[in-house]
Design a protein around this nucleic acid. Structure first.
Lengths: 130, 130
DNA sequence: AGCAACTATATAACCAGCTGATGGATGTCT
DNA sequence: AGACATCCATCAGCTGGTTATATAGTTGCT
């Protein structure tokens, strides 16, 4: 039933949250671990581990925050941007193939709903009151 | 970014795949472990473990397949149906709250796209060619 | 300046949920 | 009957998360 989501997360690649964290980094620029953890809805230790993974994979870097000795700023590397773009293209390709098989009206309906869907999910991500 | 999905899977409850497996059971009736694994896109040992969890939680039962001594048929229990319904209601409530905050046109657009979205995801779940 | 309280990150120990490899029991085909 | 295929369970190992706690740095008050 939610199998379609699994199809978009092929094994051996980036996990869902590493992917979305890289995405956040491109949007928000260098960010603190705590901020990233909040944005992704995982714990701070969880985000620390995630960043460790990204860093050893060469997809992100930690630099000390010049204004706060406790914090470090995480940024995406060029390689990270490449991987992110490749992954995005791959997913787009997977979806496009199925999308093209739909009827014209179905395609139009989905297209028309996309902005609304974005607003809905943004709303949901923003309000943590389970 | 995909944080909204995490919001729909509160901790301490059913995991995403246990939930969808229960759902599949209500739709398909008593099923073999192998079939369920295929449908959910996880491995057979993974599904065995999942069914163990459901069974010890009293949400599903294993009965030997009368026509095949190797196989067992998994079925959802009444309690399973209750839990599934409760979970579904909870998710519906979460979504409805955010949905209601959207503009009228946004709501109409999402509503109109729902059948198309269902067809798209069904298509994606059915084709495993990563 | 000095100290208490707070904050940012890291570490440790643990758990859930998956994977591939393998084996035993049963079914099927010739 | 024998060879092969299929169904499921078990095992060891991995990934990605959790909570509790420690460490280092910052801030505010006196």
């Amino acid at each position: 039933m939610l199998t379609w989501a699994r199809r978009l997360t092929p094994p051996g690649g980036l996990s869902a949250s590493t992917y979305t964290t890289l995405d956040t980094l491109t949007l928000a620029g260098p960010s603190r671990i705590t901020d990233l953890a909040d944005r992704e809805g995982i714990s701070q230790p969880g985000m620390t581990a995630l960043i460790n993974r990204l860093e050893t994979a060469g997809l992100a870097v930690r630099t000390p925050d010049p204004t706060d000795g406790r914090a470090s700023l995480i940024d995406i590397t060029d390689r990270g941007r490449e991987v992110l773009a490749a992954r995005r293209a791959e997913r787009a390709h997977l979806i496009a193939a199925r999308f093209g098989a739909l009827s014209e009206p179905d395609q139009r309906a989905l297209d028309a709903a996309l902005p609304a869907f974005r607003r809905l999910t943004a709303e949901m991500a923003a309000t943590p009151d389970i």
